[in-house]
Each structure stands twice: as C-alpha cells, then as structure tokens.
C-alpha cells in the first residue's frame, strides 16, 4: 500500500466529510448530517479495530462491546445526574481500557478461531448484562436527558458542532493509528502477527505488546461509544450486539485492513450502502451480505487495495 495513495484517499475523504454539514443544509436534507455523524463515529471504532485486526492479526468479533461500554458509561452517569463530559468521557475511556486489559489478557492466550470465539463470548457477557439490568432500562435501553457538557468550551447539542467534534476525533484516531503502525511498538505488533515465534526468538516478549495494542484499540472504541451515546441521546443493548461487531469487522476488511485509511472508506461505503439498500427493500441484508463477500473475493485488500496499482506477487 503506497503512502501517497493513502494520503490522497485520506485527504479526499476528509474534504468530502468536512463538506457534509453545508451540503446537508444547502440541499435541505438534515438527515444527511445525522447519517454522516453516525458514520464518522462508527469509523472511529473501525479504525481502532483495524489496529489489532489489520496490523496485529487479532480478529476480534467483540469490538462493538467497547462502543457499548463507552456509551453506557456516559448513559449511566447521566442517569445519576453526572453530566460533565470531563467526568463522563475519561471514565468511559478508562472503563473500556480496563475491560480490554482484563479480557485481552485472557483472549490473547488463544489464537485463530478460539480468539474469535472468546472475544465474542466476552462481548456477549456484557450484552446480556445490559439486557438484564432493569434499572438502566434493560432491553429498552436508557434515554440520556442531556448531552455531555463541557462548560462553555463546546456545545454538543449543536448538530454541526457535534459533527465537527466527531470528525476531529476521527482524524485524531487515524493519525494515532497511522503513527503507531509505523512506530517501534507497531513493528513489534506487526512482526508478532507475521511470525510470532521468530519475534520471541529475537527477544520480544510479544504478549505484552499485543495486549497493549488490544487495550489501545478498546479505549478508542470506548470513545466512539461516548460519542454515539451523545448523538442518539440514548443507549441500548443493540449497540453492542454481536452483529454490530460483525459489521465493524466487515467494514475494516471491506475498506482494506492493514491500511490506515481503508477502514474509514469501508465504513462510509458499508453504511451508505446499508442506507440506500434499506430504502429499496427491507431485505437489504440479503443483498449487502453477498455483495460484500463478492467484493472481498474479487480482490483482496479491500477498497484501498482495488485503488492501488497491482502489486507484484
């Protein structure tokens, strides 16, 4: 994957995404802003999943749990009258990080299909917890009366402001993953993905590096959750259902895992397609599913892969 192509694609995406609020208001389609706010937030989660999936070969099927944890942390605090974002958000990240640390410590002892299953199992545990706790709405979810307040700093109740805040966080997430993937740390994670045995023989205790990557990814997922809870003013168990985790995985692979910008493109493509197809038929999943599989089969490397010149074998 050439760096220049990624930059071009990234710059193009950024300009297009930055243009959404004026376009939505000029065209008189406020829903466009709602859709793209959601897309931008979910893209943060995709980008974070890509750090472990694309670079670390850790195929987590439970990444949506961090969206749930981040979201519920905000929701539960708001429920108890704590509305300050300076409390809510750091706590959302901290709880996500802690969950990633504890579960990752166990998950990363396994490989391949076992890893997929155990990440799924931990996510399901939290899912059933959210369904079961009636105090916080159980199945029905929890309505958030007020968005996180940051004093006079920013007003998240303003839709356009909220969108640009989300976009700024996405940009930051991309930048962080970009730097990490090429750093010393990133080389260890990538090396452990390609040939863990050799890495250990060279003297790298790879487990702790992979775990650290897992925690970073989970924390960023928690940020997406805190944002999403604010966008919808609502959290429910569906946010962290395993199909959401599956969607994230598809977005990453569709866009091109292992390229920094790929998951953003994958998220935009997937969610726009979902929106368009669901307007045509309620059985949109029957179309979208095979379409994604087909795209993955036709050429590896996802959207970013198709755009780049053919690599020699």
């Amino acid at each position: 994957m050439s760096t220049r192509l990624q930059f071009a694609l990234g710059a193009g995406l950024l300009i297009a995404l930055a243009a959404i609020p004026p376009v939505a208001s000029l065209a008189g389609i406020p829903f466009l802003l709602t859709l793209f706010t959601r897309i931008v937030i979910v893209a943060i989660a995709s980008v974070s999943l890509n750090l472990i999936l694309g670079y670390g070969g850790m195929y987590s099927l439970g990444h949506a749990v961090y969206i749930g944890i981040g979201g519920y942390t905000v929701g539960i605090l708001a429920f108890h009258g704590v509305h300050s974002g300076l409390v809510q958000w750091p706590l959302a990240l901290a709880v996500s990080a802690l969950f990633a640390l504890v579960t990752g410590a166990l998950c990363l002892r396994t490989r391949g299909v076992y890893f997929i299953m155990i990440t799924l199992a931990f996510a399901q545990m939290v899912y059933f917890l959210t369904v079961g706790v009636a105090k916080y709405g159980g199945d029905d979810g929890l309505t958030i009366a007020r968005r996180s307040s940051f004093g006079g700093l920013v007003n998240l109740a303003d839709r356009t402001t909220f969108y640009y805040v989300s976009l700024a966080f996405l940009l930051a997430a991309v930048l962080v993953v970009w730097r990490i993937s090429r750093s010393h740390f990133g080389m260890v994670v990538r090396g452990a993905c390609a040939n863990d045995r050799r890495m250990q023989a060279l003297g790298f205790p790879t487990y702790r590096y992979r775990l650290a990557a897992y925690v970073i990814a989970g924390t960023m997922g928690g940020l997406a959750g805190a944002l999403l809870a604010n966008q919808t003013d609502f959290v429910n168990p569906e946010m962290l259902s395993w199909t959401r985790s599956g969607d994230l995985m598809i977005m990453v692979i569709l866009g091109g895992s292992g390229s920094v910008i790929g998951p953003v493109a994958g998220t935009v493509a997937y969610m726009v397609l979902e929106e368009v197809l669901s307007g045509i038929t309620e059985h949109w999943q029957i179309i979208l599913g095979p379409l994604v599989v087909l795209m993955a089969l036709v050429r590896q490397g996802g959207i970013v892969g198709w755009l780049s010149p053919k690599r020699h074998a």
């Binding site: 730097r179 990490i180 090429r182 750093s183 010393h184 740390f185 990133g186 080389m187 260890v188 790298f204 590096y209 650290a212």
Partner: peptide
C-alpha cells in the same frame, strides 16, 4: 523495550 508509539521505526 519497544513501547515507543510515535517515532517511525523505518
């Protein structure tokens, strides 16, 4: 250690 997250290794 390799807990260096920012500088490009290459």
């Amino acid at each position: 250690h390799s807990f260096r997250f920012w500088r490009e290794a290459a």
